[in-house]
């Protein structure tokens, strides 16, 4: 189930809600699976002592959630590049929506590719991660 270049147009947008009311438990799950046990993300007491309002999500959890939107759209094993900047923190309770916008449809060595601008925003519309991805298309 891959995208067809002929079905894509520059400016086309695809979006998906990638988490709803992010739970502290999901952040703990991510710590366990990724191996990033930084207590800033899972330990409210530590995070407050370190000067933060509370524990907040790993940037890489946001990137993982964003990646789910991409693979759901472009298909499995189709990404050739994916990169983001973490521009704002993600807190427990946040609801995140990820969006991909088609920037360019091109061909490289006989392979059709789509370049995407990627953005994940929270429930207030504030960007939490912004970046780019490239995927092989048919």
């Amino acid at each position: 189930m891959a995208l067809k270049a002929s079905d894509l147009s520059v400016g086309q947008v695809h979006e998906e809600q990638v988490c709803y009311d992010l739970s502290r438990t999901q952040i703990v799950q991510y710590a366990g699976s990724s191996g990033d046990y930084n207590p800033l993300h899972t330990d409210e007491i530590f995070a407050k002592a370190a000067g933060y309002p509370g524990a907040f999500a790993h940037g890489m959890l946001t990137m993982g959630l964003t990646g789910k939107m991409l693979t759901n759209w472009v298909g499995d094993g189709r990404l050739t590049k994916f990169g983001v900047r973490f521009v704002s923190q993600v807190w427990p309770g946040d609801t995140l929506t990820s969006k991909a916008t088609v920037k360019e449809i091109r061909e490289e060595g006989g392979q059709k590719l789509v370049d995407l601008e990627v953005e994940t925003v929270n429930q207030d519309g504030t960007a939490v991660a912004t970046g780019h991805a490239t995927a092989r298309v048919d």
Partner: peptide
């Protein structure tokens, strides 16, 4: 906790 992740980029 002073260090944070600012960017991550992958090429597959």
């Amino acid at each position: 906790g002073g260090g944070l992740h600012a960017e991550q980029h992958y090429e597959y």
